[in-house]
């Protein structure tokens, strides 16, 4: 965090309204927190729409981490060296951990994890569309790390300053781990692009497939993203979709050159006047069709998640029953 960015406050801007305070007083307190760029904490009153927006955003992020484990888990057992295998396992574990922090942050907004999980399993909640693409080759582990995690970092670093305290704090740790993930993706691609002809081809093919969908991870163009402004007014979102996308392209062009790989967009060109790289149009029809369930792996990803949930039901039930029996026994011993 740079010195110009505001440090999250631990103490409220003003005395919080007492219980039973008028709606006007509560709203005024919330508005003051936002104006001061302070943090809203779980104990604070907040508008229903703020709560709902955040619950949706944080839980979608959690679901993305969990579904995102699948394309990478697909390569753990085939990783081409033991060191790569160990690194990939650690990375996928981190993703499960991110899911856990984020579900915990979402729970502080009042919706329990099992309800959020039901929303995912029943198809009522979304997750990032990028994970509906297949991970076909080992180079996809590199492309996912470099491009997908790279895009995620661009999106997520500003979220460390999100107005909702538990979310912002979860993002700090997540971003640290994501930057490690991006580096391991870079390293995989670097090894491949400096390896045999077959390895170079594998690396370029993976970048060709993941680049467009990675750019779409920032969401639709600003003109088609009507809810963004409200999130920006609430200090949840700090930059627009297009601003973040531009930042990402500017970051990736020199990195691709260093890797010796080509980004699959003939329109990429430095624009002296703007001080940014220009880039070509993205296929938004494809983006919307994947969101609507027509992606190559939508059904497969959900089927795997549901199978894990269903097949684990008896295990969770036994654990809960064991805990209940233990508590009962403890109560008896205590003479309750």
């Amino acid at each position: 965090m740079t010195s110009t960015e505001k440090t999250p406050t631990l103490s409220p801007v003003a005395d919080a309204p007492a219980a039973g305070a008028s709606h006007e007083a509560e709203q005024a307190y919330f508005d003051a927190l936002i104006t001061e760029d302070s943090r809203v904490e779980p104990r604070d009153w907040m508008p229903e729409k703020y709560r709902k927006t955040l619950t949706r955003q944080v839980s979608q992020h959690a679901h993305s981490e969990i579904i995102g484990m699948q394309p990478e888990a697909n390569w753990i057992t085939r990783a081409p060296s033991l060191k790569r295998k160990a690194i990939l396992m650690a990375k996928v574990q981190d993703e499960a951990g991110h899911g856990l922090y984020l579900y915990s942050a979402a729970e502080t907004l009042g919706t329990p994890r099992h309800v959020l999980n039901e929303q995912l399993l029943e198809g009522r909640a979304k997750y990032s569309s990028i994970f509906n693409y297949p991970a076909r080759t080992w180079a996809d582990m590199g492309a996912i790390g470099w491009l997908v995690d790279g895009a995620a970092i661009c999106n997520q670093v500003p979220l460390c300053r999100a107005s909702y305290g538990p979310y912002g704090r979860a993002m700090v740790r997540i971003c640290k781990e994501e930057s490690f993930h991006q580096r391991q993706g870079w390293e995989i691609l670097y090894e491949l692009s400096h390896g045999t002809e077959a390895q170079k081809k594998m690396a370029q093919d993976a970048v060709n497939r993941f680049y467009g969908p990675a750019l779409q991870m920032f969401g639709p163009p600003d003109a088609d993203s009507p809810n963004s402004q409200q999130s920006m007014n609430w200090n949840i979102k700090r930059f627009s979709n297009d601003e973040l996308r531009q930042r990402f392209v500017d970051m990736m062009v020199p990195q691709a050159e260093a890797l010796g790989l080509t980004l699959p967009d003939p329109d990429i060109k430095w624009n002296e006047e703007r001080g940014h790289y220009d880039y070509g149009p993205l296929d938004w029809d494809e983006f919307h069709s994947v969101i609507q369930g027509k992606g190559p792996c939508n059904v497969q990803r959900m089927q795997r998640r549901r199978a894990a949930h269903d097949e684990g039901a008896w295990v969770r039930e036994a654990a809960a029953e064991y805990a209940r029996k233990n508590a009962e026994q403890h109560a008896e011993l205590m003479g309750a």
């Binding site: 753990i76 057992t77 033991l82 396992m89 996928v92 574990q93 499960a96 795997r304 684990g312 295990v315």
Partner: peptide
């Protein structure tokens, strides 16, 4: 390692994955 993303709870994805990771470390 095959359990990762298939376990009964997220906590077990992490636990079994971690045990697998330890074992791969020992193998190395």
């Amino acid at each position: 390692a095959h359990w990762i993303s298939r376990a009964p709870e997220l906590e077990e994805d992490i636990a079994l994955g971690n045990i697998a990771l330890d074992l791969i470390g020992h193998a190395r």
